[in-house]
Design a protein around this nucleic acid. Structure first.
Ligand SMILES: [Mn+2]
Ligand SMILES: [Mn+2]
Ligand SMILES: [Mn+2]
Ligand SMILES: [Mn+2]
Lengths: 227, 227
DNA sequence: TATAATAGTTAGATTAATCTAACAAATAAA
DNA sequence: TTTATTTGTTAGATTAATCTAACTATTATA
């Protein structure tokens, strides 16, 4: 007879994941009920109910009308789900020829599969990847995130070569635009010119395609110097 | 805006799968409420409720107090779930070094992932397999099952070489026993002697290991002549 | 500080999936 | 053909996850 000491529902996992993201973003490590609800596409009343359950399970610290923080257990659980999500995205991208704008939706489902062995073996099968197809860090089995020392394309200087290592915006529209522009991960980018008035950049991609990128775009691209 | 014409819940899918198995076994293509409930580990009352919903969705034909049959739509849905289940089992076995007694539990979860592209690409990645790690046929995209012309080991004659192509019993205990005996798929089996009184067989496995198998065991092994 | 705006909670209802207990229909046995 | 057994349904309750509408607490602003 197997005893499920700590079995989270699909929904609980999604709340934890959202809370992890929000508490990271807010940097004060706190999140509010309304932003949580908005993030998950539910009404605040619904979120309040769930917060009570997550508190009961000691996954969050939270008092009525107060801010929400994750406990250590909560953080660990969230990181595990993120780990699974990003490993699955990597699998779909590397092994099943998905494009980087297609992987997220399916990974949202796959991240909830419960199997320790699956997680371990998938990681091994993929060669212990450190970053997913969007350049996001994959937490290791202990929840530790690898550090990517990259900068925004919008911050770099002219006439050096960089490679694209990540994106800040994960929307399908943005990713598909990048596909069309040959701006996919690991491709090289050389900044030829920067317009002073709108910060748009003339760039050479992979030594082949020259194009102009708006600041809106360059602010969402993470690059590293080549050399 | 995506319109979900026909979205089945996790639970509905499991009922369909169970109904498919039962209606196949019963060969009169019919199933009863109680056996369905027993099969799914729920109470008959629960099954009755679900039957009403499946009928509403035109997945089954069923009248109060009558027998249950799957409609064509119902059969197609069931076959698709079985296809996914067996492809995932094959993936776990072939790519992630799961043993054949470990794959089923995880495939029970993976079979519910919704993604046409995932299904197509997984099939391609695995090389369009026709049989899963237990020797069970994998329905193709149209729901057609490949035919395996095999016989039971209990029915074969002495001094010919066979290979193991499938098992009739999928229990963990049985599969783990076979592992220990080197009786895994595609291994060769030569019948050296058959005891008349209990039909037990002395067999040589892979030209290496000689052992005795009870009729209980040989009745659950599917083999094909090598030659 | 009084008031308006924002943020969060509670109460009450709904839906899917499950249960138990009681009942009804169909089938088998005497 | 009664009666007993098996099979299946109904009614009423429960739990998780959601909603709307109404309420309360906190924070900002005039
Ligand atoms: Mn993602
Ligand atoms: Mn990602
Ligand atoms: Mn299976
Ligand atoms: Mn199988």
């Amino acid at each position: 007879m197997v005893i499920f000491v700590f079995m989270l529902s699909f929904t609980e996992e999604n709340y934890l994941k959202a809370l992890f993201r929000l508490t990271q973003e807010n940097s004060d490590e706190e999140a509010g009920t309304n932003e949580l609800a908005a993030n998950l596409g539910v009404k605040p009343a619904t979120a309040t109910d769930m917060l009570k359950r997550l508190k009961e399970k000691k996954l969050i610290d939270y008092e009525k009308y107060g801010k929400i923080t994750l406990t250590n257990t909560g953080k660990k659980s969230a990181l595990k789900i993120i780990r699974k999500h990003r490993l699955w995205e990597t699998f779909l991208y590397e092994k099943l020829d998905f494009s980087w704008d297609e992987v997220h939706e399916v990974a949202e489902q796959l991240e909830h599969i419960q199997s320790e062995k699956l997680l371990v073996q998938l990681d091994k099968f993929l060669g212990f990847p450190q970053f997913d197809p969007h350049g996001d860090p994959i937490p290791d089995k202990n929840g530790k995130m690898p550090l990517l020392k990259a900068m925004l394309l919008s911050e770099v200087i002219v006439n050096k070569r960089y490679k694209l290592v990540g994106v800040c915006n994960h929307s399908t529209a943005f990713l598909q635009f990048l596909n069309k522009t040959s701006l996919t991960i690991n491709n090289s980018i050389e900044v030829k010119e920067i317009q002073a008035f709108d910060k748009s950049m003339t760039v050479l991609i992979n030594n082949k395609n020259q194009t102009i990128l708006s600041n809106e775009v360059t602010q969402n691209l993470l690059v590293m110097l080549i050399g």
